[in-house]
């Protein structure tokens, strides 16, 4: 395949940035999207040009590091991570526009690399459980119904990629935050900090400058892990009941 790539280039955080066009030829349909970018970068390196910077790590759809807003959608046309997207999803001769995630809370560091440490700070605000060290507890010591365990697990599959924020017209982090609150609120181990967690994680989410939720549902449709909107409803319940009943005046 031969492709034209329209890629966002930006030297650093304060640079204005802009699109630049590149041609890549002889791309295999079986390449992943990131491998296609590797090919481009090799060409650029050989020419002595600055390669296109983009985030990636595991390249097997589990770490959440890869990003990219491809042809108007986060992670491209399929509901998957960019590392799991293959060039067979595109046509020969196509022009592909590649942009970084756009959000105040995800500043562009260079080219397509954005700083997602705002997610880390939301987690640090309450995305943990108090576990005392000591002997290893017996498995299944605390009975948890299968249905609840499954629901918590579904929420826990969120890989923190930020596609929900990228997809949302308000750059809202509600889907991410609600998944992280849900995975703990559903389990007995999460009860200790339950109210505090909802209050603190949401306060941090707001402080980072993410937008509010208009319930458009774009986040869930674009989420590579299919995190459901029921988590956002649960987060709202957690938050409203926490603020009226907690001792945090």
């Amino acid at each position: 395949m031969n492709l034209t790539l329209k890629i966002w280039r930006q030297k650093n955080k304060s640079d204005k940035g802009g699109f630049k066009d590149y041609k890549v030829s002889d791309v295999s349909k079986d390449m992943s999207f990131l491998e296609m970018l590797d090919v481009l970068n090799e060409q650029l390196s050989e020419k002595g040009e600055d390669p296109v910077h983009f985030d990636h790590d595991c390249r097997e759809g589990i770490c959440g590091m890869c990003s990219l807003y491809i042809n108007g959608k986060p992670h491209g046309p399929l509901q998957t991570t960019t590392c799991q997207l293959h060039m067979r999803s595109f046509n020969d001769g196509e022009t592909i526009t590649i942009e970084p995630w756009r959000a105040t809370a995800f500043p562009v560091m260079k080219d397509l690399v954005v700083d997602r440490s705002s997610f880390d700070r939301i987690m640090q605000a309450g995305g943990y459980v108090s576990v005392n060290t000591g002997g290893v507890p017996d498995a299944n010591e605390i009975p948890i119904p299968k249905r609840i365990a499954d629901e918590a697990f579904d929420a826990a599959t969120c890989i923190g990629c930020g596609a929900c924020v990228a997809a949302c017209k308000n750059a809202s982090a509600m889907l991410f935050t609600s998944a992280k609150i849900s995975q703990l609120a559903l389990l007995p181990q999460g009860q200790v900090e339950r109210k505090e967690r909802a209050e603190r994680m949401i306060a941090q989410m707001d402080a980072e400058g993410f937008g509010a939720c208009t319930n458009t549902g774009a986040c869930s449709i674009e989420c590579p892990k299919g995190i459901s909107l029921t988590n956002i409803a649960r987060m709202n319940r957690e938050y409203f009941s926490a603020v009226v009943s907690s001792e945090n005046v």
């Binding site: 329209k6 756009r102 105040t104 017209k169 750059a171 809202s172 400058g209 937008g211 208009t214």
Partner: peptide, 12 residues
């Protein structure tokens, strides 16, 4: 506030 959370829009 929502506009402020996404000051730069996507080209596509």
């Amino acid at each position: 506030a929502n506009k402020k959370a996404r000051p730069v829009n996507y080209a596509v």
